[in-house]
């Protein structure tokens, strides 16, 4: 491999006599051989990937066309499991809930992250690393711990209501996670809190990579902070924003642990997400086919989002 590489990439070197006397190899043969060698080296990881990812994935796709209790014989139902997204109002509502969560898990943290990155990029102050560390902390905590902490914060006699009462807003106090209107936004804000630090650190590290001359040029041209943000910082962070969007949106589509630990989808079905519905179908009620259909739909959505985001970010 190495010798052929050297040959093709470093033509200025004196070629060995042996090769000079033999006719030049056709590039196609060379490429094919290299590809085969590469494939051979990748065979073991590929086989492993196939066994633990591709085959289960294919199985899930297959299960999704059946009505199956996980034990006995399965009946072919075609696309009926997928049609549940349209016919079952509860399952349909989970899609709406997840869209609300996208706003809180993705849009808000990215906007706030950009804002703080823009503010911090303009001047360096002492102790920056400490602030970043503090804001990044939620990203390090286990999601179950975060969920338990917020269950306490949102409780009727929890800190949030105590603060409201202390400032004379006692009439607003409620059991936040048991309120049909407020439970979903309350859970969403937990997501905002958890992902904001991640977005901010990502964007700050991105701004350090932007050529300072661009800022100087913008300032010399008389750009204010707002103009500077839109003309220099934001375009420079395009790649980081793409990463943040992909990670946070797919994370919000997969929201399970936060809901499971706090509300289990309640009150009523007001915080039910597709992932929780999937878990119930697969492990609590014998509806493996439906669970597979939910899983496949979510996987396809995540894949689509990832493709669209990378394509958009790469376009010039």
């Amino acid at each position: 491999m190495l010798s052929t590489d050297e040959k093709t990439t470093a033509p200025h070197r004196p070629a060995p006599v042996v090769t000079a006397s033999t006719p030049p190899r056709r590039p196609g043969g060379l490429a094919r051989r290299r590809r085969l060698t590469g494939l051979a080296l990748a065979a073991i990881p590929l086989a492993l990937y196939g066994a633990v990812v591709l085959i289960p994935l294919a199985q899930s796709v297959r299960y999704s066309f059946y009505s199956w209790d996980g034990v006995g014989a399965a009946t072919w139902v075609g696309l009926r499991n997928y049609a549940s997204f349209a016919t079952d109002p509860v399952l349909r509502s989970t899609v709406g809930h997840v869209l609300v969560l996208v706003v809180f898990f993705s849009v808000l943290p990215i906007v706030l992250g950009l804002l703080s990155a823009a503010l911090l990029a303009r001047g360096r102050s002492r102790g920056m690393a400490v602030y970043r560390w503090i804001f990044f902390l939620p990203q390090v905590l286990t999601s179950v711990v975060v969920a338990l902490v917020f269950r306490r914060i949102y409780a009727l006699d929890g800190p949030l209501n105590s603060v409201l009462q202390a400032v004379g807003l006692g009439s607003l106090a409620r059991a936040w996670l048991a309120d049909f209107t407020w439970a979903l936004p309350a859970l969403g804000l937990v997501g905002t809190w958890a992902t904001f630090g991640f977005c901010m650190v990502l964007f700050i590290s991105g701004t350090t990579a932007i050529n300072p001359e661009l800022y100087e040029a913008a300032r010399m041209d008389g750009a204010g902070p707002v103009r500077e943000f839109f003309c220099v910082t934001l375009p420079g962070l395009r790649g980081q924003v793409a990463i943040a969007v992909t990670l946070t949106v797919t994370a919000s589509l997969r929201t399970f642990d936060l809901v499971w630990v706090t509300t289990r989808g309640g009150p009523g079905t007001s915080t039910l997400t597709p992932a929780v519905a999937l878990y119930r179908a697969a492990f609590q009620n014998p509806q493996v086919g439906l669970a597979a259909a939910i899983g496949v739909t979510m996987a396809v959505l995540c894949l689509l989002i990832a493709v669209v985001v990378t394509r958009t970010a790469e376009r010039d």
Binding site: G50, L54, I55, A58, Q59, V61, Y66, A73, A74
Partner: peptide, 16 residues
């Protein structure tokens, strides 16, 4: 590859 995997894993789930 996916198609082969589907075939390889039998024609109908169940019967365990």
């Amino acid at each position: 590859v996916l198609g082969i995997a589907v075939l390889a894993s039998g024609c109908a789930p169940g019967g365990g």
